[in-house]
Nucleic acid binder design. Structure first.
Lengths: 136, 136
DNA sequence: CGCTTAATTGACAATGATTATCAATAAAGC
DNA sequence: GCTTTATTGATAATCATTGTCAATTAAGCG
């Protein structure tokens, strides 16, 4: 794991983290930029992109790519969200993932078949890009 | 459901469906375009985009959007009747169930994150009606 | 088999999100 | 306070994808 140097706390970065903290919605970098301007602080668009990107890498914000290719960000919803993992069978590296429809689907299936107290286990495994590249 | 008119079978569309059928890899529209040119048939790039798009809408090909925003396509896998179980934690009675979207979803997630050889485990448990009625 | 017609094609321009550039600015540490 | 160096921001550049529009051609019909 590469230990990247701690990022400087600039007023722009602070402003970005501040607006992020005020909403848990997923918004595009450009939308966050607009929000910032409405709030008075004028942070450059490029800076918003860079900050959201680095925050996402640091795991401070969640990022998803829409079907149209736009990347949306929101403050990281702490630990409360139930999630699963996609784990590499070779090196063990794991990604946290969410299975959007699944929870509800399982619940409904249970009701349909007369089951209550539905619980589930979902494990997804594969070989990550790095391991595949090294033939492991 | 809107009944869209059946698309014409042009030689370009045929060529595209042909290369698609020869590989089960996920590739970008541009990559498929290159493949086509290598194979001799010169189909316009815009046409490749349009065809892949309509094929994807028609469910004939799978499409995934990568983290970088590129859309990848491959011929639709349509086959395996892999299934899972909903099991009662009390009496062990099990129902065979199918999780329609899941298989493909897991596969696409893998591609997006650079994983190959995706496999998964899905276990759903609950308390069946009989056991619930008897307070078990 | 020819004809008509509307869908399709392709070369290229346009879009739109994101990234790179680079001089100016300002954290952090001393 | 001063120096160093990451960060910023305005703007140009990139790159996948979509729109444009005249030319082409599949399909249905007689």
């Amino acid at each position: 794991m590469s230990t990247s140097p701690a990022p400087r706390m600039t007023k722009q970065r602070a402003a970005i983290m501040d607006v992020l903290s005020k909403s848990e919605e997923f918004r595009s970098a450009q939308a966050w930029h607009d929000t910032l301007r409405h709030d008075g602080s004028s942070v450059g668009l490029a800076t918003v992109y860079r900050s959201l990107q680095s925050l996402a890498e640091a795991g401070q914000v969640d990022a998803v790519v829409t079907d149209s290719g736009e990347t949306l960000y929101r403050r990281c919803g702490a630990e409360d969200t139930h999630h699963h993992h996609l784990r590499c069978r070779s090196c063990g590296a794991a990604h946290d993932i969410e299975v959007p429809e699944f929870e509800r689907w399982a619940e409904q299936l249970g009701v349909k078949l007369g089951f209550t107290g539905i619980d589930h286990t979902v494990e997804i495994t594969g070989i990550c890009r790095d391991c595949a590249a090294q033939g492991r």
